[in-house]
Simulated scan of single mutants.
Amino acid sequence: MDYLFVSDAHGDRAVLGKIVTAYQNKVHAIFYNGDSELPADDELFNTMLPVIGNMDFDAMFPDDRQYHDATIDIYQTHGHLYQTELNLNQIRQKVSTLNIEVVTLGHTHQLGAEVIDNKLFINPGSIALPKGPYAYIGGTFAILTVTADTLQVQFYNRDLRAVPELQFSFPR
């Protein structure tokens, strides 16, 4: 089962539309981790599961989301409400008592995938304004593939191409 995570488009609706068109029937769910700068009633969000970012001003976006299906339990937020630009301590405390396997967030514009406190944290980076050591890629999103034994994260660029050196596998 595959799940797509994208964040921080900052008004670049075209790239979000391209991702939705390419993946809406290929992944189980598309999570949008905030800072779209679009209204919550934009038709793109009929296909995506959005949360509010610090640059979103439509109060109809939720602050966070707990997602559950037969395959995975996911906690989604943008990150600004937990000061993730400083560290992950506040969000770690928030999710410590939740029965979830994956935490997904954005806000920092830096991609990452790592297990902390027995939970996989995934930041897809920014699809429009990337920062950090992978900024040269020009924008990224991530797909999580869930199997019985592993959680596999593959990062993609704006051209919807997998970035070979950004593929990670974590045991379940």
Rank of each mutant, 00 (worst) to 15 (best):
S96W: 06
I30P: 02
D41F: 10
L86W: 13
G17I: 00
P62F: 08
L4F: 10
Y134H: 14
A142P: 05
Q90K: 15
G17L: 07
F141W: 06
E101F: 10
Q152V: 08
P50N: 06
D12I: 02
D8S: 08
H80M: 06
F155E: 02
Y134F: 14
D63C: 08
K18I: 02
G139E: 13
A59M: 09
P39N: 04
K26W: 01
S36P: 07
Q76L: 10
S7C: 11
Q76F: 07
Q83M: 08
R13G: 00
D159W: 11
V15E: 06
I52N: 12
I116F: 12
L166N: 05
V102R: 07
P133F: 07
I116A: 09
T84G: 11
P164I: 06
V103D: 01
Y67I: 05
D64F: 13
L38A: 01
Y75S: 03
I19P: 01
E43M: 12
E37T: 00
Y82M: 02
Q24V: 00
T108C: 02
V163I: 15
Q167G: 15
K119Q: 15
T108Y: 02
I19G: 07
Q90G: 02
I127Y: 05
A40G: 05
L16A: 04
Y23P: 01
M48G: 02
T77H: 02
L81I: 08
E37L: 04
V95L: 05
M60V: 12
R172W: 10
V102K: 12
F168H: 15
F61P: 02
T147H: 00
N123I: 10
Y82A: 00
I143D: 11
L166D: 12
S169P: 03
V27H: 06
A148M: 09
L88D: 09
T104L: 14
E114N: 14
P124L: 11
N33W: 04
G11V: 02
L16K: 11
Q167F: 14
D64E: 12
F61S: 00
P133A: 06
L151C: 14
L129I: 15
I72L: 11
N33M: 12
D69M: 07
M55T: 09
D117R: 10
L144F: 12
F31I: 05
T84L: 14
T77Q: 01
P130C: 10
I100V: 12
F31R: 00
L86F: 15
H78I: 05
S36C: 02
Q24H: 05
A59L: 13
P133W: 03
G139R: 06
F61C: 01
T84Y: 07
R65K: 12
Q66M: 07
V51T: 04
Y136I: 11
M60G: 09
S126R: 03
G106Y: 01
H78L: 08
L129P: 07
S96Q: 13
T150R: 11
N157H: 06
I91D: 06
H107A: 09
